[in-house]
Design a protein around this nucleic acid. Sequence first.
DNA 1: GTTTGACCAGATTTCGTATTTGGTCATACG
DNA 2: CGTATGACCAAATACGAAATCTGGTCAAAC
Lengths: 221, 221
Amino acid sequence: MPPAEDRAERAERILDAAAELLLRAGYRRTTIEDVAERADVGKGTVYLHWKNREELFLAVLLRESVRSLEDLVAALEADPLAARLSRLTEIQYTNVLGRPLLRAGYADDAGTLGKLLPKLHAKLDPRHDEAFVEYLELLAANDLLRADRPARELAVAYQAVLHGFLVGAPPPEPALIADTVAHAFEPAAVSTMRLRAIAPRVGRLFTESVALDRKQLERAY
Amino acid sequence: MPPAEDRAERAERILDAAAELLLRAGYRRTTIEDVAERADVGKGTVYLHWKNREELFLAVLLRESVRSLEDLVAALEADPLAARLSRLTEIQYTNVLGRPLLRAGYADDAGTLGKLLPKLHAKLDPRHDEAFVEYLELLAANDLLRADRPARELAVAYQAVLHGFLVGAPPPEPALIADTVAHAFEPAAVSTMRLRAIAPRVGRLFTESVALDRKQLERAY
DNA sequence: GTTTGACCAGATTTCGTATTTGGTCATACG
DNA sequence: CGTATGACCAAATACGAAATCTGGTCAAAC
């Protein structure tokens, strides 16, 4: 009934409910009716926003991913030195560890996400990977990354490192991955000046990457 | 009936059969009878060697692990420079990738190993981890490892990196992990002389570590 | 003394039934 | 009229009892 404005609010409420239940009971055991009840809407209303169950829960994860990248961009604006690979990694690592749903996604926690996992990766990876490689190339062009290997190759190694740290139980300290990444992928000397110079562009890069995701989310609103 | 000599041979045959079936059908679907038939012995005979199903299959993995470490020690004897962390990692990484059962173990392939996985880690990790930390400390004492962090901490980071590479699909090139490890954990300059000096001790270290495993295996022979 | 396979209790699978649930849409409502 | 809803249905899932299989033992065979 309330016009466009409250529609988004309702969508958020449904996503909140879905997120809460997803985390507590897992994908397999969370029904649309549970979600609808918790969000205080009828079951049919959920389908006014998403075309099926899978899309709804993917939206939950997409929103979480968007939020985490928004945090990252904010950190980047607050401190240009966060554009440095090791620092950015530490921020994002901490960020993901603090968001159980994302952590489940990265750590392949099938218990929580069940059959969502494959679909999720199919939906998110390609674009973010691309943006990440661009980021690495930007770093490389400014002597802020090892130059003796192509960025795309370093990206593969980097993903392996990140993944390895995220699945660790208990996850190692953020400082340890920052340190490891610094040594593994950064040149001996990192120019603070150049870092400051590229920080805005890095911020924009991630902002653009996240814009696509956000647009996809808003389709439901 | 044939005396002690052929007992070991029979045990090997049973382990061969179990390994083959484990790889083809997975732990859950491989029965003791299948194994016995394939090894051409009666079911009861299997229990003359191992006290239950789980022990049998753990022995399969233990043998595989022993073999891989034997390969490593051999490589170390053939080339002292293999004592270097990055080189040793490359060798062992390649080795593991070439042994599907170990690969399944490291990559937490529950489809193949099923409920064996937790038991396996409980059985193997502690000792090997200990030996590995000793190895790192030996490196550190000879300026062959970064000295700005305790070896035990570097070990955590190292395991994360190794794990990350092993679960990658497809697994990255061995050269890439060697390179990553070299930058992440080795000092800027690695002395070939010192490497040659410690290589025998490194070999001995791993030999001793594997001796315990082998002894445990021989109990069944 | 060694090996074996028949044997059995307990675990696992099967398969038909009962229940639940994703998704639709005619109706109610504002 | 346009929006929200929950009764409704087919399909999926959960359940449970019966049938089958399997780990482990041990008396008999060798």
